[in-house]
């Protein structure tokens, strides 16, 4: 897989072809082959969702089969088992929206405090937040499960297992968001402006909500997207803290369905049902990515130039 970048740039490779054409052809072939690699599973996902179960495993994978039944498949996914899929979709949206909005707001507030105020322990706190970026999130899930099983409130014990809070509360914590928002606020909100607002008699809350949030908008959208996608795709945490299907997000629900496909006689979940459910679950994120591309690019620059 020698790439054109590392090949000598003498243009000798294509005898008849002109220099430029030869130089263009190799990189283009290289790029095209990899776009097949990255897109093929998704193309297959789309075609498979239009098939019936027997065509799914026998017909050619990258085209329609003789019996297209996309709408029937969608209807099965949405209706089966008392609309459980719609519950999962609703849960996923709920988890993602609340976590993303909350995590972003709290990260913006903390980032503002850490970049524009001076107080005891500020650097220590920031160091701890930076260090926490390296803690495997999965290492957190087990102790979280144990703590949530039995929370001692002094007068009574409660359990958060199988509640919305079990997924949302830990997802509100975004150390990465705080890190980004501190850098972003330091770079885009001027101290003089804050001073001027204070002299004009603006309240501290007013300054934050009317000035700081507005000036850090691209950073906010970045953190919002990261948290949203992170929660939408999260598997390990909900898998550990939820056992009641009614609280599952799509990720855990689809893995659960997939587990049922191999149990003939016990369940009638088909592969096509899993595939169609998977297709529906990726559509919102793919749309979000396509429409918000600009912010992704921004966010990733921010991320590396800051490091």
């Amino acid at each position: 897989m020698a790439t054109t970048v590392s090949s000598p740039g003498t243009g000798k490779q294509a005898a008849g072809a002109g220099r430029t054409l030869g130089k263009q052809a190799l990189p283009m072939v290289f790029l095209f082959l990899f776009s097949v690699y990255f897109l093929a599973p998704l193309v297959w996902l789309v075609f498979s969702s239009t098939k019936n179960e027997s065509d799914f495993s026998t017909a050619f994978g990258f085209w329609f089969s003789g019996h297209p039944q996309f709408l029937a498949n969608v209807s099965t996914v949405l209706n089966v088992n008392d609309h459980i899929y719609l519950h999962w979709l609703f849960n996923t949206v709920l988890y993602s929206v609340i976590s993303a909005v909350g995590a972003t707001l709290f990260a913006a507030m903390a980032g503002y405090a850490l970049s524009k105020f001076f107080f005891r322990g500020r650097e220590l706190l920031f160091l701890i937040i930076l260090g926490s970026l390296m803690v495997p999130i999965t290492a957190l899930a087990l102790p979280l499960f144990l703590i949530m099983t039995d929370i001692n409130l002094g007068f009574t014990h409660i359990s958060l297992i199988n509640t919305y809070a079990a997924v949302i509360l830990p997802s509100l914590v975004s150390p990465f968001g705080v890190y980004l928002m501190r850098i972003y606020t330091a770079g885009s909100v001027s101290d003089d402006l804050l001073q001027a607002a204070r002299i004009d008699g603006a309240s501290e809350a007013g300054i934050f909500f009317r000035i700081v949030l507005r000036m850090t908008m691209p950073g906010l959208i970045t953190v919002l997207l990261f948290s949203f996608v992170g929660t939408w795709n999260n598997y390990f945490l909900p898998y550990v803290v939820l056992s009641d299907q009614n609280y599952y997000p799509l990720s855990v629900g689809l893995a659960y369905w997939n587990g049922l496909t191999n149990q003939a006689g016990v369940s009638d979940v088909t592969y096509v049902q899993v595939i169609t459910g998977a297709l529906i679950s990726v559509i919102p994120l793919v749309i979000a990515f396509l429409t918000l591309q600009r912010y992704w690019n921004n966010s990733l620059t921010l991320n590396t130039t800051a490091g």
Partner: peptide
């Protein structure tokens, strides 16, 4: 590099798997 065309298409087609939840990618 200046050699290639369709840059936006290729960039997007390489990046789009990142939008696919890990569970769905694993199933596929």
């Amino acid at each position: 590099s200046p050699f290639v065309r369709l840059k936006a298409f290729f960039r997007l087609s390489y990046f789009i798997p990142f939008a696919i939840p890990g569970v769905v990618a694993t199933l596929l």
